[in-house]
Structure formats: C-alpha cells, structure tokens
Lab assay of single mutants.
Amino acid sequence: MTYKLILNGKTLKGETTTEAVDAATAEKVFKQYANDNGVDGEWTYDDATKAFTVTE
C-alpha cells in the first residue's frame, strides 16, 4: 500500500511516498526520513487518505 508524507517544516516543505505493509511501518520510515532531514514537529495521520503530516 502507498502512504504519503506531507512535510510542513520550517526549512523543508514537500511530499514523499513510500510503499509499506501497514501504517505503523510507513510511520517508522517517514519519521526516520523527517529526522534525517532535520524536521521535528507535530505528527498527524489521516487513514482515509493514507497521509501523514508533520508540521514544525
């Protein structure tokens, strides 16, 4: 299944996707991606759209 990450960081904005077996796996991938790019903020998840959002 495809999951999307929407980044609303102070220095990094954009979107990326990942293929994962479930939302928990996608969340781990996205949190590592955000951490690697220096984005740390409030996380939300919308199951209807399979989209995670992180806002700094």
Score class of each variant (00 low, 15 high):
Ala26Asn: 00
Ala24Thr: 09
Met1Arg: 13
Asp22Cys: 05
Tyr33Phe: 12
Tyr33Ser: 01
Val21Arg: 12
Asp46Thr: 04
Thr17Arg: 07
Val29Asn: 05
Leu12Glu: 05
Ala20Ser: 06
Asp47Gln: 10
Ala34Lys: 01
Ile6His: 06
Lys4Cys: 06
Lys4Leu: 10
Gln32Ile: 10
Lys28Ala: 12
Asn8Ile: 14
Ala34Phe: 03
Asp36Val: 09
Lys50Cys: 06
Phe30Ala: 00
Thr2Gln: 10
Lys28Ser: 10
Asn35Tyr: 15
Val21Ala: 13
Val39Arg: 02
Ala34Trp: 03
Tyr3Leu: 02
Phe52Glu: 00
Asn37Gln: 13
Asp22Asn: 09
Lys28Leu: 12
Lys4Pro: 02
Leu5Ile: 03
Thr11Gly: 08
Gly9Pro: 03
Thr53Lys: 06
Thr44Tyr: 10
Val21Cys: 11
Glu27Gln: 11
Gln32Leu: 09
Asp40Thr: 14
Met1Ile: 14
Tyr45Ser: 01
Asp47Thr: 09
Asn37Tyr: 13
Gln32Thr: 08
Asp47Met: 08
Asp47His: 11
Val21Trp: 12
Glu15Met: 12
Gln32His: 06
Phe30Ile: 00
Ala34Asp: 00
Thr44Arg: 07
Thr25Leu: 06
Thr18Tyr: 12
Thr17Leu: 08
Asn35Ile: 15
Val21Leu: 12
Leu7Ala: 03
Asp47Leu: 07
Thr18Trp: 08
Thr18Asp: 02
Ala48Pro: 06
Tyr45Pro: 00
Leu7Phe: 11
Thr55Cys: 06
Lys13Trp: 10
Asn37Phe: 14
Ala23Pro: 09
Trp43Ala: 01
Asn35Ser: 14
Ile6Asp: 03
Leu12Trp: 14
Tyr45Cys: 00
Asn8Tyr: 11
Ile6Leu: 06
Gly9Ser: 09
Thr18Gly: 03
Lys10Asp: 06
Asn37Pro: 01
Ala51Phe: 06
Thr44Asp: 08
Glu19Ile: 15
Thr44Gln: 09
Leu7Gln: 02
Val29Cys: 08
Ala26Lys: 00
Thr11Pro: 04
Lys50Val: 03
Val39Ser: 03
Tyr33His: 04
Ile6Arg: 05
Lys13Cys: 13
Lys13Gln: 12
Lys4His: 11
Glu19Arg: 14
Thr25Cys: 06
Asn37Val: 15
Tyr45Thr: 00
Thr2Ile: 14
Leu12Phe: 15
Tyr45Gln: 01
Asn37Cys: 14
Tyr45Lys: 01
Val54Lys: 01
Ile6Tyr: 13
Lys10Gly: 07
Phe52Gly: 00
Val54Tyr: 03
Asp22Val: 03
Val54Phe: 05
Glu15Phe: 13
Val29Leu: 11
Ala20Pro: 01
Asp46Val: 04
Lys31Thr: 05
Thr11Gln: 10
Gln32Lys: 14
Glu56Trp: 13
Glu15His: 09
Phe30Pro: 00
Gln32Gly: 05
Asn37Arg: 15
Ala24Val: 10
Val54Ile: 11
Thr18Glu: 04
Gly41Asn: 02
Asn8Glu: 07
Thr25Ser: 12
Lys28Pro: 03
Thr2Val: 13
Leu5Trp: 02
Val39Cys: 04
Tyr33Thr: 03
Val39Gln: 03
Asp22Phe: 03
Leu5His: 01
Gln32Trp: 05
Val29Phe: 15
Ala34Met: 06
Gly14Glu: 10
Lys10Cys: 13
Thr49Cys: 07
Gly41Gln: 02
Thr49Asp: 07
Gly14Pro: 05
Asp36Gly: 05
Asp46Met: 04
Leu7Pro: 01
Lys10Gln: 11
Ala26Tyr: 01
Gly41Cys: 03
Asp40Ile: 14
Glu15Ser: 11
Met1Trp: 13
Thr25Gly: 08
Ala48Phe: 11
Thr16Lys: 11
Lys50Phe: 09
Val29Arg: 09
Lys28Ile: 11
Trp43Ser: 00
Thr2Gly: 04
Leu5Asp: 02
Thr55Lys: 06
Lys31Asp: 01
Val21Ser: 11
Thr44Ala: 09
Tyr45Phe: 06
Lys4Phe: 11
Asp46Lys: 03
Thr55Ala: 06
Asn35Met: 15
Glu19Lys: 13
Thr55Leu: 06
Lys4Trp: 11
Phe30Trp: 02
Gly9Glu: 03
Thr11Val: 11
Lys28Asp: 05
Asp36Ile: 10
Lys50Ile: 02
Asp40Gln: 14
Ala48Val: 13
Ala23Phe: 13
Glu27Met: 14
Thr11Ser: 12
Ala48Glu: 13
Lys50Leu: 10
Gly41Tyr: 03
Asn8Gln: 09
Gly9Gln: 04
Lys10Ala: 12
Gly9Asn: 04
Ala34Arg: 01
Thr25Arg: 06
Thr18Leu: 13
Lys13Arg: 12
Thr55Val: 08
Gly38Val: 04
Glu42Pro: 04
Thr53Arg: 06
Leu12His: 11
Ile6Lys: 05
Leu5Val: 03
Leu5Phe: 05
Tyr3Thr: 02
Thr55Glu: 06
Lys10Phe: 13
Glu19Ala: 08
Val39Asn: 02
Tyr33Asp: 00
Phe52Gln: 00
Thr17Glu: 09
Ala26Trp: 01
Ala26Arg: 00
Thr11Phe: 14
Ala26Thr: 00
Met1Phe: 15
Ile6Asn: 04
Tyr3Val: 02
Tyr45Ala: 01
Met1Val: 14
Ala20Ile: 03
Tyr33Pro: 00
Val54Cys: 09
Thr2Asn: 06
Asn35Gln: 15
Gly38Phe: 07
Leu12Asn: 07
Thr11Lys: 11
Trp43Glu: 00
Asp36Leu: 12
Asp22Ala: 04
Thr55Pro: 01
Asn8His: 10
Ala23Lys: 14
Thr16Ser: 08
Val29Ala: 08
Thr53His: 05
Asn35Cys: 13
Asp40Met: 13
Val39Ala: 04
Lys31Met: 08
Thr55Met: 07
Phe30Cys: 00
Ala51Leu: 14
Met1Cys: 13
Asp36Asn: 08
Leu7His: 03
Leu5Met: 05
Lys10His: 12
Ala34Thr: 06
Val54Gly: 00
Lys10Met: 13
Tyr33Lys: 02
Lys50Asn: 07
Ala20Glu: 04
Thr55Gln: 06
Asp40Glu: 13
Ala26Val: 02
Gly14Ala: 12
Val39Phe: 12
Gly9Arg: 04
Thr11Arg: 10
Gln32Asn: 07
Glu42Ile: 14
Tyr3Phe: 13
Thr55His: 07
Ala23His: 10
Ala34Ser: 05
Thr53Ser: 06
Thr16Val: 15
Tyr33Asn: 02
Gly38Lys: 07
Ala48Trp: 07
Ile6Val: 08
Leu7Tyr: 10
Val54His: 01
Val39Thr: 03
Tyr45Arg: 01
Tyr3Met: 02
Phe52Tyr: 06
Trp43Gln: 01
Asp46Tyr: 04
Asp46Ile: 04
Phe30Ser: 00
Thr16Tyr: 15
Glu56Met: 08
Ala48Lys: 12
Gly38Met: 06
Leu12Ile: 13
Glu15Thr: 13
Glu19Val: 15
Glu19Ser: 11
Val21Gly: 09
Val39Pro: 01
Val21Tyr: 12
Met1Glu: 12
Lys50Pro: 01
Asp36Phe: 08
Asp40Trp: 15
Thr17Val: 08
Asp22Met: 03
Glu42Tyr: 13
Thr17Met: 09
Val29Pro: 01
Asn35Ala: 15
Ala51Glu: 13
Ala24Leu: 10
Lys4Asp: 03
Thr16Trp: 15
Thr53Cys: 07
Gln32Asp: 07
Leu7Thr: 04
Glu15Lys: 06
Ile6Ser: 04
Val54Asp: 00
Trp43Arg: 00
Glu56Pro: 07
Ala23Asn: 05
Ala51Gly: 04
Asn37His: 15
Leu5Tyr: 02
Glu19Asp: 10
Tyr45Asn: 00
Val21Asn: 11
Phe52Arg: 00
Ala48His: 10
Trp43Asp: 00
Gly9Ala: 08
Lys28Trp: 09
Leu7Ser: 03
Asp40Gly: 08
Ile6Trp: 06
Val39Tyr: 07
Met1Asn: 13
Glu27Thr: 04
Gly14Tyr: 14
Leu5Cys: 09
Ala51Lys: 09
Thr16Asn: 05
Glu27Ile: 09
Thr44Gly: 06
Ile6Met: 05
Leu7Lys: 00
Gly41Ala: 02
Gly14Thr: 13
Phe52Asp: 00
